[in-house]
């Protein structure tokens, strides 16, 4: 009696197992690595209409973040400054620079400069800037070391797990409230646990804390 199945088919289950395992693990690894904001968002660095450098303004000159983003302590969003804010200095400093033409135009016409938004939560996330910066959560946690960036780059994933890392353990992240805009601050003995208790920091972890 001749073989119905040739002899190599004896190894078919083994081969299928190996192939399936390798492919399965590869696909899972690929999804884990790529299907996350750590890949999709981090590194986004759009070209801006005006070559504004945070490294010069916030780093070298040392302007406080709130000089320009002055609404951040009161509003849920951190405002992009109006051209009038730029003109506080640039009506005198580099007042004829070509790089500032759009700023002068915007100041004169009232038309917005078409800045490109970099950090953006989905529309179903209700992130409130004021509640964070008024409870010792620094800009640097979500935006990275802006004071070193010539062009702003999306440094942090801003994924849900990124938010929860802090919401589950705020004591590890809070700092004295007057230092929230001091981006290069290092914790040397600040008692986060005590601050969280004293300031009644209650970062919710239920869905409705952020999603409405």
């Amino acid at each position: 009696m001749s073989d119905i199945f040739p002899k190599w088919t004896n190894k078919l289950p083994l081969m299928a197992g190996v192939v399936g395992a390798v492919l399965g693990v590869s696909v899972l690894a690929g999804i884990t690595y790529y299907f996350t904001p750590k890949y999709t968002r981090v590194g986004y660095q759009p070209k801006q209409p005006v070559a504004f450098s945070h490294a010069i303004h916030a780093g070298q000159i040392g302007l406080d973040c709130r000089y320009c983003h002055n609404g951040v302590e009161k509003a849920w969003f951190s405002n992009i400054p109006a051209a009038a804010t730029c003109m506080n200095c640039h009506s005198q400093v580099k007042k004829d620079s070509d790089k500032l033409q759009l700023v002068r135009d915007s100041f004169a016409s009232g038309q917005s400069i078409p800045w490109v938004q970099i950090h953006k939560t989905p529309d179903y996330v209700y992130f409130n800037h004021s509640v964070h910066v008024n409870r010792g959560v620094s800009c640097v946690h979500c935006h990275g070391e802006i004071q070193k960036m010539d062009e702003v780059r999306h440094e942090k994933p801003l994924s849900m797990s990124f938010c929860l890392d802090c919401h589950r353990d705020p004591a590890a992240f809070v700092r004295p409230n007057e230092l929230v805009t001091k981006l290069d601050w290092k914790n040397e003995g600040f008692d986060g646990k005590k601050a969280v208790h004293d300031w009644k920091v209650q970062p919710g972890q239920s869905c409705s804390t952020c999603h409405r």
Binding site: K38, Y39, T40, R41, V42, G43, Y44, P46, K47, H154
Partner: peptide, 17 residues
Amino acid sequence: RGSTSRKPPLEFFSDMD
């Protein structure tokens, strides 16, 4: 991950984003 890009973030499932 984390390589610099001029292109806006990818969205795999952008439901209600």
